[in-house]
Amino acid sequence: MAFHRITFNVNGELEQADVPSNMTLLKMLRENLALTGTKNGCAEGECGACTVLMNGEPVNSCLVLAVECDGAEIVTVEGLAHDERLDAVQQTIIDAGGVQCGFCTPGILISARALLDRNPQPSEEDIRIALVGNLCRCTGYVRIIQGVQEAARI
């Protein structure tokens, strides 16, 4: 199986890697780069725990090949905070009580960040729809939705 040399940007840092064809972006992040904030919940695009930003748009990193990321810009949950300062939505989800086990949280934050970037004033319905691909088994979503609403307010 062929390996490919790729260059890409993760959370603002330029990275180079030699990846086999069948390596997913999720696996590369978790295993090669030890960016384990991005989670594997199903490996088939259904749970959203693996959601990252690829060129500014959220993708299920379990369904993207690492080799497809050549030249791409990737942002993971580890890249949301800057200089120890949490991103607004990280803080509002904490304050709203939208974190329980925390396994869905990274993917939810990425989806929420992407939503707020493309639509700074989302309606409740917009938020629900933007998060429909992020399953959470603990919280019942209510506090997560409220957290995103709050992030849009500030």
Binding site: G48, E57, P58, V59, N60, A114, V132, G133, N134
Partner: peptide, 9 residues
């Protein structure tokens, strides 16, 4: 179709 992140692809 599916979810926003899936529709990115």
């Amino acid at each position: 179709v599916a979810s926003y992140q899936l529709r990115t692809r």
